[in-house]
Amino acid sequence: MACQQLRSTSLPVRPHALVLELEDELQRLRSGAAASAPSPAALAGRLGDAYGRIEELVRLPGGRDALSSARWRRAVEAGLDASVALLDLCERARDAAAVAKQHVRAARRALRRGDAALARAAVRGYARCLAKAGKQAGARKALGRRAAPADAEAPAAVKLLSEAVAVTVAVLQGVLSTLSARVVDTRKSRWCVVSKLMRSDWSLGVCRDLDGEDGVLSAQETLQELEDSVEAVESGLEHLFRQIVQSRVALLNVLTL
């Protein structure tokens, strides 16, 4: 009986279902960010949901025990430090989305008034502010490496925290890059007419080549679609910001209580 009990306790412990779900979702999010997912708002929202699941993992007895262990304290503290930088990046991305939305609205107003130069300046301002925020996110790629535990035997909860840091940087950069590229993407017909606003030789009288529709009307419709997309990203980033805060609070409670 004792021998049987010894053999049973030596069997490998199966990962908690939540761990497996998070591993799969973080991998999908990383792949989506790398592939410039067509719905950046959904990408940001899903990442926020993943942080909600991380908070659940932190509160589980197994996760709490692993994260509060003295052996992994340094790795957990590195993750906490990284979360501060992530919140800053998320806030910058959210602010960039808000500014980009104002540029889109300015371009629509300019088109209604027939001011091609002002519309062009607004679209360029849109692309510029998003590109700048995307570069800021790209410059923080080392965050994931710094938060990663040095020991390969680290518990799943510790590894997932560091993986979430790296995925968050990749998603933020991917979301901003996707939005920025839309106004210069001439391969897709619905963005082609807006990309013409970036050209110095564009005028309101010559853009009539999108499915036979008037170019100005097509640009207005596409800009409205773009504004809706940016607004959805702004909402997704707000959700992500709140979820990172909540997961950080849960982690701090594990270390201090």
Rank of each mutant, 00 (worst) to 15 (best):
C3E: 10
R7Y: 01
R7L: 08
T9R: 07
L18A: 05
L20H: 05
R30P: 03
A37H: 15
S39A: 14
L43P: 05
D49W: 11
G52L: 10
E56G: 10
E56A: 12
E56L: 14
V58I: 14
G63W: 03
A66H: 14
R71W: 01
R71V: 09
E77H: 11
A82G: 12
A82F: 08
S83M: 13
D88Y: 06
D95A: 12
A100R: 08
K101W: 08
H103F: 06
A106H: 03
R108K: 15
R109Y: 05
R109V: 03
R113L: 15
D115C: 00
Y126D: 07
A131R: 12
G134I: 07
Q136N: 13
A137C: 15
K141P: 03
L143M: 08
D151Q: 01
A154S: 07
L161V: 08
V167N: 06
V169F: 06
V184R: 15
K188M: 06
K188V: 14
S195V: 02
L197S: 04
D201I: 10
S203E: 13
L204K: 10
R208Y: 08
D211K: 00
E213Q: 13
V216E: 05
S218E: 15
Q220M: 13
E231F: 10
E234P: 09
E238P: 00
E238F: 05
F241D: 09
V245S: 09
A250Y: 00
A250Q: 00
L255S: 06
